[in-house]
Simulated assay, not measured.
Amino acid sequence: MKKVLVVETNQATYGARKEATGLWLGETTEFITQLQATGWQVDYVSPRGGYVPVDPRSLKYLDAAGWRCYQDPAFQKVALARTQAPEQVDPTKYTAIYFAGGHGVMWDFPTNRQLQVIAEVIYQNGGYVTSVCHGIAGLFNLKLPNGTPLIAGKRVTGFTRAEEVLAGKRRLVPFLNQNLAQQKGAKFVKRRAYAQFAVTDGRLITGQNPFSATAVAKKLLVAINQEGSN
């Protein structure tokens, strides 16, 4: 059975501001729905473990499958209330890691070295590193064994400058994903704002915005199937 590790945020606010953010819930539920339908096992981790706050704005965008997840006590327990801490994770057990987004990740993904090591081990073992929207923040400090940024020279996407402006959060975030990806040497690609879009570059799969989680999952499944047929 293939296993994927879903990474979620513990950050409930925009920095020190008293304004709610957190996990964009559909970025988890839409992704896992695709994988679980094909028999994958899903585990959850967050930078500190335990409680994962949900961005309240994300609830109005949930599809039917998302609402079933949100109301499922088993999902609530493992994905939102009692996520694993990084030190509890054995990265050798996973075929892929997926960094879900929501603005909260911009504060607790980039600096968590334990999560970075988990992702690096999965990638070095031939696994896949994937993200969607602001989840790309989890990729910025990943490195290859030679010290090169993992995303350098790779085609990647994430929440764009234009989307941040349209979301009204440009002045609240600590950095812009598009700018930082380019600073790390990535080839940042995008489509129009809020259009579904995901891109594969080898074993790196990234999605642009909250409407791209399903596309990331489907590209991961395609990549795995192609690998198995070779």
Rank of each mutant, 00 (worst) to 15 (best):
R161M: 11
A85D: 08
L35F: 11
Y123Q: 08
K184I: 06
T28M: 10
T200C: 13
T157A: 05
A16S: 14
A181F: 00
V45F: 12
A119T: 10
A16K: 14
H103V: 13
L176Y: 06
G50W: 10
T157Y: 07
H134R: 02
R17Q: 15
M106F: 03
A217Q: 02
K169D: 09
R203D: 04
V4N: 06
N146L: 01
Q36Y: 00
V78D: 07
E120K: 04
G49K: 08
I136V: 15
L220K: 11
T21G: 07
A119H: 03
A100H: 10
E8S: 15
A65T: 14
V52G: 07
G126T: 03
R161V: 14
L166R: 14
L25K: 08
G127R: 10
L204C: 05
V7I: 15
D90V: 13
V156H: 00
Y194G: 02
A96F: 11
K169Y: 03
I136K: 01
G228I: 09
F140A: 00
L62G: 09
A12M: 11
D201C: 06
T200V: 15
Q182G: 04
A223Q: 07
P73M: 12
I151D: 10
N112A: 09
R68P: 01
P149H: 01
F211M: 13
D43S: 14
A137Q: 00
P210M: 10
G126Y: 03
N141T: 10
S229M: 11
G104L: 06
Y94R: 04
T157L: 07
N177A: 10
N179C: 07
R171Q: 14
Q36S: 11
F211I: 05
T9S: 15
G185T: 03
W40G: 09
G49A: 05
G228M: 10
T13D: 12
K143D: 01
P145S: 05
S212M: 09
K93Q: 12
Q208K: 08
W107I: 06
L5G: 06
V7T: 11
Q76F: 05
G101K: 03
A81I: 01
K143V: 13
L150W: 07
P174N: 09
Q34G: 08
D108L: 08
N10A: 07
Q182R: 12
I205F: 08
T28N: 10
S212D: 05
F159W: 12
F175R: 06
A74V: 15
E163D: 04
V132I: 06
T95E: 12
Q208G: 08
D63R: 12
L23F: 01
Q116Y: 01
T206H: 03
H103R: 04
G26A: 02
A223C: 09
V117D: 05
Q116S: 14
F75D: 09
R203Y: 04
A215C: 09
